[in-house]
């Protein structure tokens, strides 16, 4: 599959229909998942209706981490095999992952206000998500600061791998740190196993976010490849 798609011409032919199909799939799942989550799933007996924020929050957390894992794999392939499409893929996934991380932080904050009684709590998971978000910003900023595309791709790939080493360490450190500082007043969510009635809409929304991630990443990749073609064509015209 990857060897097949490694050819840019084949990739463009594949993504020309794959991106709209994924996008349509995401729309279908959102159309099913959002009403299911908002109206046809039970309210939590402790948190009441506010539990519905979970259906926007948790999938964003999953796939912002998933996007970083994808970028790490793509960066590795780009560095080792010097593959242009892998570089393009890593760059294309970054803004999507960053926005997912931002959605996760914002919805988490809005969820915290009624349930924890505070807009921000230095809870282990929130703190490591914030670090992930800042890592995304650094990655995107490094890409845009270096003009030479190929050099920018390699340097960003190194940064992505360094971040992939750093993020689990941060996760571990922050967990250690927050158990040390944990205030007793927090009401923990997810203490009991999640009920089946909530799992259905949650997984549907998770699937919707995943398809959206795939569609947006493919569209970003196509845009980057088209931009390169335009630049190459302009260069040829200027030389002629």
């Amino acid at each position: 599959m990857f060897a097949f798609l490694a050819n840019p011409a084949r990739f463009m032919a594949f993504s020309a229909w794959a991106a709209p199909v994924l996008f349509a799939g995401a729309l279908v799942l959102f159309a099913a998942g959002i009403p299911w989550a908002l109206f046809y799933s039970p309210a939590d007996y402790q948190m009441g209706e506010t539990v519905r924020i979970m259906y926007a929050h948790v999938p964003a957390a999953w796939w912002s981490m998933g996007a970083y894992a994808f970028m790490t794999g793509a960066s590795f392939v780009g560095l080792v095999w010097r593959h242009v499409l892998a570089d393009v893929a890593a760059r294309a996934a970054a803004p999507v992952g960053a926005v997912f991380a931002a959605i996760c932080l914002i919805t988490g904050s809005l969820w915290g206000a009624p349930t924890w009684g505070t807009l921000w709590e230095w809870d282990g998971r929130m703190t490591s998500m914030l670090v992930l978000f800042i890592t995304y910003l650094g990655y995107i900023a490094l890409w845009s600061a270096i003009e030479d595309e190929e050099k920018a791709a390699r340097l960003a790939a190194i940064l992505c791998l360094v971040g992939a080493v750093n993020l689990p360490i941060v996760k571990f450190s922050v967990d250690w740190w927050s158990t040390l500082h944990q205030p007793a007043s927090i009401m923990r969510s997810g203490g009991s196993a999640i009920s089946g009635e909530m799992l259905g809409p949650l997984l549907t929304m998770g699937g919707a976010y995943l398809l959206l991630f795939g569609a947006l990443t493919l569209m970003n990749m196509r845009a980057a490849i088209f931009r390169r073609r335009v630049e190459a064509a302009e260069l040829r015209k200027a030389q002629a």
């Binding site: 670090v131 800042i134 890592t135 910003l137 650094g138 900023a141 490094l142 600061a145 270096i146 050099k151 340097l155 190194i158 940064l159 360094v162 971040g163 750093n166 360490i169 941060v170 450190s173 922050v174 250690w176 740190w177």
Partner: peptide
């Protein structure tokens, strides 16, 4: 690492800081 990644960026101080700060998190904690 941050200094090497941003060595060719003119006035890269802010970018360098942004890149390095998440890496500072574990030792700070």
């Amino acid at each position: 690492v941050g200094a090497a990644l941003t060595a060719s960026v003119k006035r890269g101080g802010v970018l360098l800081t942004l890149i390095v700060l998440p890496l500072f998190a574990p030792p700070i904690i």
